[in-house]
Nucleic acid binder design. Structure first.
Lengths: 184, 184
DNA sequence: GTCTATAAAAAGATAGAC
DNA sequence: GTCTATCTTTTTATAGAC
């Protein structure tokens, strides 16, 4: 496919920012157009409807997800550590996209819910491949999810209390594999 | 304070349900009134504005939170296990309220954000009191958050993959305290 | 307390000029 | 491709009857 025009990308980016920062309700056509620096008509040329905008977000997200999964399976520190580490990263393109998709899912966009479900199962599979135990893999997924949930909530408890302690947490992740042995 | 009339409670409950199930945008005055079985005018008698409805949710949530914190500090299995366990519970009044408050926070209602921040810090303190280590306490909080995040996303990956495995996870929680010793 | 009617604003979308 | 003007529907809120 031909590379999309710059204005189209600006619209998509503006919509994603609004979804993340102000929620789905605030992400109106007018607000999106305004933030993208175009008129409502200009926006509607690239995305014929609200729904088309959502589809655009999901397609763009899928590209970022594919890159992430490829890295996750190759990285030297292992899938678990990579997953938790990247879950805590704010302001990466992938995370902005995933937060936006989550907002859409919560607003009832079913293709967004399906994408999240699919992404989670792919992450889970890579982590399971590494740690070799379902319960431990779930634990890792949930820790990442917890970080991500805080990330997705601006001004959360996370920023004030947890800031600077990420490394301590990452150090604990590889230890999780030992839990099962302790348990037996 | 005098006990509020039944219709008022039905309105609040309808608004909370809509926030949880269909998102903040779908939780309009009309939809809320309709679900509560009253007219728009009837709703607006009890809650003079959208904002008043949000305040109502937050006040009601605070009551449920206080009860939960009291239980959490007394329960025999310990604060950590109680916290993770209740994070996984769907359809309790507390969880419905917290999901609703989260939706409001994401929609930019600042008093909702502040309440969530406050609740998290109170949970954290009780867990820290039990486990005695900041990093482990964070781990517990994040696992609960991860569960809660899935709970708050209907039709998530959680239901299909994780269902029935909660007990295994709960068994691992008390083991987390041992991680720090392993690390030293 | 609860309802209907109505007003005022905002949101999504179309048409057509440039 | 991008804009302005306009239309329709939805949403919030008010006024006043019952």
């Amino acid at each position: 496919m031909a590379r999309p025009p710059a204005a189209r990308n600006k619209c998509l980016d503006a919509y994603i920012s609004l979804l993340c920062e102000e929620g789905e309700r605030a992400a109106t056509l007018e607000a999106t157009a305004s933030r993208a620096g175009v008129s409502k008509g200009g926006l509607l040329y690239h995305f014929a409807s609200k729904e088309a905008l959502a589809v655009g977000v999901i397609e763009s997200t899928e590209e970022h997800v594919q890159l992430d999964l490829a890295r996750m399976s190759e990285v030297p520190e292992g899938a678990s550590v990579y997953y938790v580490q990247t879950s805590a990263e704010v302001d990466t393109e992938l995370d902005r996209h995933l937060v936006a998709v989550q907002r859409l899912a919560q607003a009832g966009v079913s293709s967004a819910s399906e994408m999240l479900k699919d992404v989670h199962s792919r992450w889970f599979q890579l982590i399971l491949d590494e740690v070799g135990d379902q319960s431990i893999a779930h634990l890792v997924i949930l820790i990442g999810e917890g970080l991500y949930a805080h990330l997705a909530t601006p001004d959360s408890w996370y920023q004030s209390t947890f800031d600077g302690r990420l490394q301590e947490l990452l150090d604990l992740v590889p230890q999780l594999k030992k839990l099962k042995q302790l348990n037996e």
